[in-house]
């Protein structure tokens, strides 16, 4: 007997409302785009009937990284730039959990950029949402890697000197990338649809959400907010399909097959109009946790034996002696360790 869909015990499955995923009052500023992402996340959990005790939100540091506090699920508000490796560890140890990663443009694209690159290459089954408001908001307006050139901030009073980093082109340049999409916080329908597609994708799905910072960059996206033509919806059969109402407002649409990597890279380079939709999707890229799947059972005894063997390798024995046990287990530890180096 298993708890598969056909199991009679499934009839006891609980259903959840939006309120079941809400926790506390967000401390974000009024008008902050984080609110839209939070709402879309909560709707996603409700619509997929995710069990709160089987769902984990992992974040780094920044305004966006407060999101796990507002989700009634497991959360890990970790350290700056380290949301991805923490999430990978969670997923490796508990592949049965649905793991979401919440990160910001400073958290992901600056201090956490090395983890970002390698998380893409590992392609573990995570849903990663980059809240990109183009500025460090929590620390009161410093330039981030995605701040536009010329942005005056506390760290760039004469204006930012460098061209902004484009998270989409960077992501699409990494080996093993399997899902890349872009959304904007002011079109909730597509934001939800993209998050939904990202969640359904098996592999690391990277969603950049361009969001407004109502406090420090209140006018930055006004031209795009006011003119729907400056947003280009990427539509395709089996990918994004806007409703009739949305299509009537956002008439600038482009049919794009997410399987086409070269075209995805061209679209990713666009700055105006902003492309919104699924740029790239390849369900055939293997997930790291599947490649490393082992039938070996980890219990207290096997973990203890592995640790003992590892410690014995570095133990200095009185008189320079090493026991037979130490040598034997040290040798085994090389195999058991399985480190990638």
């Amino acid at each position: 007997m298993t708890l598969e869909a056909d199991c009679p015990l499934k009839m006891y499955e609980e259903h959840h409302d939006l309120a079941d995923y809400q926790s506390g009052v967000p401390r974000w500023c009024s008008g902050c785009g984080d609110n839209a992402i939070l709402t879309a996340m909560q709707r996603l959990c409700r619509d997929h009937n995710l069990r709160p005790e089987k769902t984990a939100f992992i974040s780094g540091i920044g305004c966006s990284s407060r999101l796990p506090h507002y989700m009634r699920a497991y959360g890990f508000h970790s350290i700056h730039g380290r949301a991805l490796p923490v999430a990978e560890g969670v997923k490796m140890a508990r592949p049965d959990l649905d793991v979401f990663v919440v990160t910001g443009d400073g958290d992901c694209c600056s201090i956490g950029s090395a983890h970002w690159i390698h998380a893409l290459r590992y392609n573990m089954n995570l849903t990663v949402v980059l809240h990109d408001n183009h500025v460090y908001g929590l620390t009161k307006k410093q330039a981030s890697p995605t701040s536009p050139r010329g942005l005056k901030s506390n760290t760039t009073p004469r204006g930012a000197y460098l061209e902004a980093l484009n998270p989409l082109t960077v992501t699409l340049g990494v080996q093993n990338v399997s899902f890349v999409a872009q959304a904007v916080d002011w079109i909730p329908e597509t934001l939800y649809d993209i998050l939904d597609a990202a969640f359904r994708h098996r592999g690391l799905s990277f969603v950049r959400v361009i969001q407004r910072c109502s406090e420090f960059l209140p006018k930055l996206f006004d031209p795009w907010l006011r003119d729907p033509q400056k947003v280009q919806l990427l539509t395709h059969e089996g990918a994004l399909k806007p409703s009739a109402g949305l299509a009537a407002v956002y008439k600038n649409q482009l049919d794009h097959d997410p399987a086409d990597m070269n075209r995805a890279r061209e679209i990713a380079s666009l700055e105006d109009p902003i492309p919104v939709g699924i740029l790239y999707r390849n369900p055939d890229v293997p997930c790291y946790e599947d490649l490393r799947l082992s039938d070996k059972v980890r219990n207290a005894e096997t973990i203890r034996a592995g640790l003992e063997a590892e410690f014995d390798r570095f133990t200095v024995w009185p008189g320079g002696k090493r026991t037979q046990r130490g040598r034997a287990q040290g040798g085994n530890a090389d195999d058991a360790n399985g480190s990638d180096g």
Partner: peptide
């Protein structure tokens, strides 16, 4: 309503 981004401006 379908275009609302839940930013709390009006409800506040």
């Amino acid at each position: 309503t379908p275009r609302c981004s839940s930013c709390n401006e009006c409800t506040q």
